[in-house]
């Protein structure tokens, strides 16, 4: 004990202590941290399916049919999978507030996580479909931002804009912005192809590619605006509007001032 006490002011002591503390915290976290992805994927209880069915009947069946077979007002949900339910309800797109060319992202989500999971379990029980993606993929950790950037530019950028700011499609439809969207919903959208979006399943872009795309978007979001105000990253439209309104106004104002006689 004396030897330890004598060395407590050693320069390396503080570094050693830090490393020990970090290791301890990490170990404790991995022991106690909840594991939602695996838990949901493996243990879907009959109760959850039943609860999901009740929620479905009272909230979704008017459009999607009593056994999710689809009606004139809504498509069938047989085989769309848990990922589709989690995406549509989790982002507030469903329940649809009003019929329109496409369902907009909702201001508020109508159900809590447990209810969404129950509905997802019910729809997944009807027929096999894409499951809610693994935390490993949707977090984007371990993905390669450079590869993700290349994949994004080839596969996604023509609709969602190279910086993920979104863009217009035909007849009032649009590709929504993907900046600030949870990785889980980005991967679910790729898996299920909601609305106008095509499907990019794991056979097309594999899990590593998907994680890389999420990683790229998160990296992009965390980067500062090097050039100052980015005007929504929309390119020539917003930049042109800005310069026509503010730049031209400044020049006209200056010309007016130049031509005016001083008092």
């Amino acid at each position: 004990m004396n030897a330890l006490a004598a060395r407590r002011r050693h320069p390396a002591a503080i570094a050693l202590l830090l490393v020990l503390g970090l290791a301890l915290v990490g170990a404790a976290y991995s022991l106690f941290a909840p594991k939602p992805a695996q838990a949901a994927a493996t243990a879907v209880s009959a109760d959850a399916i039943n609860e999901g069915r009740q929620l479905f009947l009272s909230n979704c069946a008017s459009c999607h049919g009593l056994s999710a077979e689809g009606t004139k007002s809504g498509p069938t949900l047989i085989g769309v999978g848990a990922a589709s339910v989690d995406f549509q309800v989790g982002t507030g797109r469903m329940p649809l507030s009003a019929p329109n060319v496409q369902a907009p992202r909702g201001e508020r989500v109508m159900y809590d996580e447990k209810q969404i999971a129950a509905m997802a379990a019910y729809v997944a029980s009807l027929a096999p479909g894409p499951a809610i993606p693994d935390e490993k993929v949707s977090s984007g950790e371990g993905g390669d931002a450079a590869l993700g950037g290349e994949l994004f530019r080839v596969n996604c950028a023509m609709c969602h804009n190279v910086s993920g700011a979104g863009g217009a499609l035909t007849r009032g439809k649009y590709a929504p912005p993907v900046q600030g969207v949870e990785g889980k919903y980005i991967v679910e959208a790729m898996l299920t192809g909601p609305q106008s979006m095509p499907v990019f399943d794991d056979k097309n872009i594999n899990e590593e590619g998907k994680a890389s795309i999420v990683n790229y978007l998160k990296t992009f979001e965390s980067q500062p605006n090097v050039g100052g105000m980015n005007l929504g990253n929309l390119g020539p439209v917003s930049e042109g509007l800005f310069i026509w309104i503010f730049g031209l106004a400044l020049m006209i104002g200056t010309a007016f001032w130049l031509g005016q006689k001083a008092a």
């Binding site: 290349e150 080839v154 596969n155 192809g193 095509p198 499907v199 990019f200 399943d201 097309n204 590619g209």
Partner: peptide, 21 residues
Amino acid sequence: VRDVERTPIKASDVAIGSVFH
């Protein structure tokens, strides 16, 4: 082949509604 990965594609890998570059 896929544009980025340059891997060949099986016809059975192409789901209905999907797009490959």
